[in-house]
């Protein structure tokens, strides 16, 4: 196929930057979680772009498989924590949780 592998790296870099901007910009805890998922996906794209030149061992693809597993576990735990935070503070807006500042 005639796709330049460097383009995958550039798309991964752009996706990572967008995810980072989401994490910084949003005030909703679940939006921050979405930004983190986007950043993990960008890293997976990088690993797979390199892995297509390593067809015997496929180290990059296996690495990104494990990244996906850890990301799934992280999302489950994070949402449980967000539910608990919502029950305690009655909000999920991150700027309203300022108990230590008072």
């Amino acid at each position: 196929m005639e796709i330049n592998s460097g383009l995958f790296l550039l798309v991964g870099a752009a996706l990572f930057s967008i995810g980072l901007a989401i994490v910084i910009l949003k005030r909703h805890a679940i939006m921050v979680l979405m930004g983190i998922e986007l950043m993990l996906n960008a890293v997976n794209l990088n690993l797979i772009a390199f892995s297509q030149h390593d067809p015997v061992r496929l180290q990059g693809q296996l690495f990104s498989l494990f990244v996906m597993i850890v990301a799934a576990a992280e999302a489950a735990i994070a949402l449980a924590i967000i539910l608990q935070v919502y029950r305690h503070f009655n909000t999920v807006q991150l700027d309203e949780m300022n108990e230590l500042k008072k």
């Binding site: 796709i3 798309v11 998922e37 997976n44 794209l45 797979i48 772009a49 892995s51 297509q52 693809q61």
Partner: peptide
């Protein structure tokens, strides 16, 4: 996420 899955296919990672 669906678009990223399509990019995975184009990078030769069907299982992923």
């Amino acid at each position: 996420l669906l678009g990223v899955a399509g990019l995975f296919v184009l990078a030769g990672a069907d299982f992923l």
